[in-house]
Structures are given as C-alpha cells and as structure tokens.
Design a protein around this nucleic acid. Structure first.
Length: 583
RNA sequence: GCGAGUGUAGCACAAUGGAUAGUGUAGUGGCCUCCGAAGCCAUUGAUCCGGGUUCGACUCCCGGCACUCGCACCA
C-alpha cells in the first residue's frame, strides 16, 4: 500500500493534488495541514481547509467536499474519509491497510528506509557533554550528555551523517593554576590509584591558592604562558591532564552508550582565533572597546547598548587573551568548513542562552560579510537539575554529586527492586536487568520531558514501575520476548505471518493504529530536536500493548488469530526496541 | 534596574494554532486456576491574573504577578 513511510506526508501530498484537480481558486496556496488525530476522530486529520476557506470567504465544508470528490480513488481503498465539525477532514485507516502496513514493516531497515528522508544527505555536528578536563563529571553534566546522544541517534536514523563532537573545556587560565598546584602538591600515590580524583583536588587547591592580586596568581599566569609558548614540561603535564580526564569520562560514556567521533576541545582552536580577530576587524563587525575587541548587536532590542547594559560580545579581552567567545566563533567556522556541516547543534543548559544568541548573531554577520555558507545553528537548552526541594541537587553534606556515584546508585536501587520483584532470577541476570533498568531510568527520566525549566530529580519517580518511565517501557519488551519463547517462533518469521487473519478486536485495531504512527513521532522528535515526542509515543504504545495483552490472548488455538496477534506482537517489539535504542 | 526562561489538578508532567485540555502518581472501587499483576479496567480533580489577534488560543501579541537564571575581560 505504501510508497512512502509517512502516512501523514502522503495524505498532505494527495490533498494538495486534489486541490488542483478540483480546480480550487488559488490551489497552489492551499496547505492541507495533515497531522495525527485524536483517535476519537480518526487516524489523521487535515485542518488546513478552515483557514483556506475563511481567507477566501468560502464555506469550509463545501471546500472539503470538493476536495474529497477530487481525491484519487486509491485513497478510499486505504482510508475511510469524512468531514466533521466546521470543516475538518478525518482519515481513518481501514483494517486491511493497517494489516498491509504491518506486513510491510518487517525489520528495522524498513523503518529506517522511509525515515531517512527527513535529513538525508545532510551532515550535522552535535556538540554535547563538553565537560572541563581535570575535573570529574558531576550531576550537572548528565543532561547534556543524555539529550545530546538522543539527538544524535534521531538525526542519524533520519538519514543524517552525524559528527559527535565533545567540545572539552581544556584551555585557559585555570590550567596555569592547576600546573602551579600540581608542581607543588601532587601526590604520586593518589595519581596512580584515582588520577582524576587527585587532579580535581589539585584543581581546587590551585584555585584557592591564587586569589586575585596574589603573587601566587602571577606565578600561575607564568605557568600558563609557558604552556602556551610550548614549554615541554608544561605541555607534557597538560597532555597528561587531558588523557586522564578523557579516560575517566569514557567510563561514564560507556555506561551511557556514548562514543564521540571527536574531542576537539578549546585548545584545538587555540591557533585559529587569529583568523577570527582578523576577519571580524576587517569586516568592521567587531570594534575596539576599552581595549577589548567586541561585537555589539545594537539592531537587536535584546542586546542594544545602553548605560546600564553594554551587552558586548567579547571576542578578545583587553589583555589580548582569547575567551570562550573567540573559540566558539572559530569552532563554528571549523565545523562549517571542515565538516561541511548543514546544521550545528549545541546542547548546553539554558544559562548560556544569551551567549549563544550573540554568538549566532555574530556568526551570521561574519559569514554573510565573507560569503561563507551559513549552516543551521541550533542551541538546544535545558534547565538545571534540582532536588525535590527545588534547589540544586547536592549530596547530604552539601557537596556536588559525582555522575559516577549517581549512576552507581541508579543501578543499586534498580537491583534492590529487581531482587524484590523477581527473587528467583539468578544473580548475574538480576545484575544485568538492574543495569539496564537503572541506567535506562536515569536517561529516560531526562528525555521524557521537554522542560527548559528546572528538572526535579526523584529516584522514586524515575524507578517507578508505572507511569512514563523506563521500567514501564522495558516491561512489555520482556513480556513480548517471553511470548515468542513460549510460541517457539522468532519475532517476524515471515512464514508464520502470511497465515494472519484480518484484525478484528478493538485492542488489536488500537495497537495497529498506534504502530503506524511511529514515523510521525520520529519526524516530530527529530525535526524539533525534542526527544520527548518519541518518549511520549513509546509510552502510549506500551500502554496500548498492555491493554491488548490483557484483552486478547495471543497464544490461542485458532492458527489464523494466533498468527495475526503474533504479527502485532512482532511489530510492537520491533518498534519498541527501535525506539528505545534511539533514546 | 534591564533581559531571558518557566507558570496546566495535592505532587510530577503532556498537548506540532484545532474538535470535549491528555497521562502518571496519590485517593476510591473492581480484575490473577489464564502468554510475566513490573500489569489491566473504572472514577474524583487543573490552563497565574487582565486585555488583544484568530473561524478556533495552554500555545501567538501587549500589560501585570510569581519563581529560576543571565547581565565586560570565568568558561
């Protein structure tokens, strides 16, 4: 039945053609606005008739009738069409069409093939996680990593070449301080056992020992100059800091299923900021202000200069040093030129919104002046993680929670639950389940909401066995595998599926209707860079499956009924596993 | 002070300008000789306030209020 993957997109195309065929005035301007519908009304609905008719003083119901009369006959094979209310067009898939969709989408390749249209042939650079080296990752680093990775997977699944880039904070004054502290107080034994922990201790020592105006700070600055001018000892130390840090980060990334293509930190752009200065000065985009090189965006009400708010975008500090604005500018250029990025996505918390807005404004002016191709620029923001009291999440004694400890606790808590619910399982299996559920719960809890406000962290809620949580989604996966074990067939075995009879019961039809909407949820999630649309879809699918599973027994004696229910089970399992794999 | 983000049931969240604002938790009442009850079914309860645009507004615009955050050499 389906030439393409998106039923909504197909309907949109069909209605546009129908508008022309029906000879509607100004048919080219008609936008059908097809979207998934509330199941009470059908599977898809077209809302565009209302606006179109209103603007031209036509009766919307009459326009809708003209459209339906002009629609290709083949559409009626697959859908029941109706006009409702003031002029909505409703499309309800016929059971045979649902059945055909199920038969046609037998593997993840089938799902991927159609989805690839959204970002086909494009290169997207995604900048996420991006911690500072010489410090451990803490709870504040969780969201960028989790959200960024989900966005990468969504873009890749919809056809993009994705460049995962970890923009490490590995350069700047703090490394002078760290070297200063390292040379004085480094503990070789501690370095051998837990290097990142020791580096972090030295980092704090270095900070505390070098207050403004102190001789120690001057000494730390000299260490930094030595580093920047290639002093072998300091360069070697700095390299060691990076290596130790990356090794520690990778342990976390492994647990979260993240593997970066590049770790192009700020240091990588150290020798590229000169070009930024030169081009911004030459094009008069940047100007001198109190000795610093800055860009003003006066034409933008938000960044307009006034007595209270100078609002500069500081490209080069008065002392000649580069700041993060300059490296970020160089980074944007590198990603555009070297990776030929069609889009750049930066995933950081919302507090950096002003910075990135000014950065993007500057990039636009700069690229336009130099006739560089401008990629799509997206800043994906999210709120802070807070405790249940609404304040920043901290340990009991007020310290910062290490990401490693948080992930450990997630696994332990999940293990306790698994041990209680399934005491009969062997230890190794309980551990494996606990890892999947615990880590999955942390990631899913983060992805399932689209909050730019703060995110309240609650162990009880994220590990709850019901509600929009990872355990709730993993449960039907386990049950489905169990059913196929009992049935003695592999999910998706083609021979068994040909025997399937027509879908019949309300629960079967509801489940099938949900399954065919998977592509639309992917489109929504990937185009808006908001993974929670996919989470919501999977949650609803899991619910429809549970209802089906309770209402209709799969392993019944009638071979045709059994075959069609196994077909439904196979596709549910496929979509659930494919969807969860993207998160 | 200026700017940004966020305000949806007791709590936590959803709603791509569409039809009667969805879900989870908590509360109440049902469902296991039956493929995993980590489940299912039923039920009570909400758009911060005031204007505006629109055939239609949680959504867009204007003005308040509340909370969080950002405002020149840290990233």
């Amino acid at each position: 039945m389906h030439a393409s993957f998106h039923l909504a997109a197909d309907l949109d195309t069909a209605l546009k053609a129908a508008a022309v065929a029906a000879g509607l005035a100004d048919a080219a301007a008609f936008a059908p606005e097809v979207r998934t519908a509330d199941p009470r009304h059908g599977d898809f609905q077209a809302n565009g008739v209302l606006g179109y008719a209103k603007a031209r003083k036509l009766n919307p119901r009459a326009v809708a009738e003209q459209l339906l009369a002009a629609v290709p006959a083949s559409l009626h094979d697959n859908y029941a069409l109706s006009i409702a209310g003031p002029g909505f067009i409703n499309f309800t898939l016929k059971p045979a069409a649902l059945h055909a969709w199920l038969r046609a989408h037998a593997s993840v390749e089938h799902l991927r093939a159609g989805a690839a249209a959204a970002h086909a042939g494009q290169t997207w650079v995604v900048d996420y996680s991006s911690p500072n080296t010489a410090k451990q990752m803490h709870v504040g680093h969780l969201r960028s990593a989790v959200i960024g990775e989900a966005i990468c997977r969504l873009l890749a699944f919809t056809g993009a070449r994705v460049v995962r880039d970890n923009h490490l904070g590995d350069w700047g004054t703090q490394f002078g301080k760290l070297i200063y502290a390292f040379k004085r107080w480094a503990d070789p034994a501690a370095l051998a056992t837990d290097a990142i922990e020791e580096l972090e201790r030295l980092y704090k020592l270095g900070n505390d020992a070098t207050p403004d105006g102190s001789p120690a700070l001057e000494e730390a600055k000299r260490e930094l100059v030595l580093l920047q001018t290639g002093d072998p000892e300091n360069v070697a130390l700095w390299r060691k800091f990076s290596e130790v840090s990356l090794a520690a980060f990778q342990e976390i990334y492994d647990r979260l299923g993240i593997r970066f293509d590049h770790n192009l930190g700020e240091s990588f752009y150290n020798d590229q900021v000169g070009r930024v200065y030169a081009e911004l000065a030459e094009t008069k985009i940047a100007e001198d202000s109190a000795g610093a090189l800055v860009v003003f965006h006066d034409e933008h009400s938000r960044f307009k200069r006034d007595a209270e708010r100078p609002n500069p975008f500081m490209v080069r500090k008065a002392d000649g040093a580069s700041g993060y604005a300059s490296t970020d500018l160089a980074t944007a250029l590198y990603r555009t030129e070297h990776f030929a990025a069609h889009g750049i996505v930066v995933v950081t918390d919302f507090r950096q919104a002003d910075h990135f807005e000014q950065l993007f404004l500057t990039v636009k002016k700069w690229f336009a002046a130099k006739h560089y191709r401008l990629p799509e620029l997206h800043h994906v923001t999210f709120g802070a993680v807070t405790g249940e009291d609404g304040k920043a999440l901290r340990t009991r004694d007020g310290g910062v929670i290490k990401l490693k400890d948080l992930l450990d606790e997630a696994e332990e808590r999940a293990f306790a639950i698994v041990a209680e619910k399934n005491p009969d399982l062997p230890e190794t299996e309980r551990r494996a389940i606990a890892r999947a559920v615990g880590l999955g719960a942390v990631q899913y809890a983060d992805l399932s909401q689209n909050r730019s406000s703060n995110y309240v962290f609650s162990w009880d809620k994220m590990l709850a066995l019901d509600g929009n949580t990872a355990p709730y989604l993993l449960y039907p996966v386990a049950r489905l595998h169990s059913i196929f074990r009992k049935a003695g067939v592999a999910p998706g075995a083609a021979a068994a599926e040909t025997a399937a009879s027509a879908l019949e019961t309300p629960a079967e039809l509801a489940l099938a209707r949900k399954l065919v909407k998977f592509p639309d949820s992917l489109r929504l999630a990937s185009e808006s860079l908001r993974p929670h649309f996919l989470c919501l879809y999977l949650f609803e699918l899991a619910g429809d499956y549970s209802t089906f599973n309770t209402a209709d027994k799969v392993l019944v004696d009638d071979p045709a009924v059994r075959a069609r229910r196994l077909l439904l089970c196979a596709r549910t399992l496929l979509v659930l596993e494919t969807g969860l794999d993207l998160l």
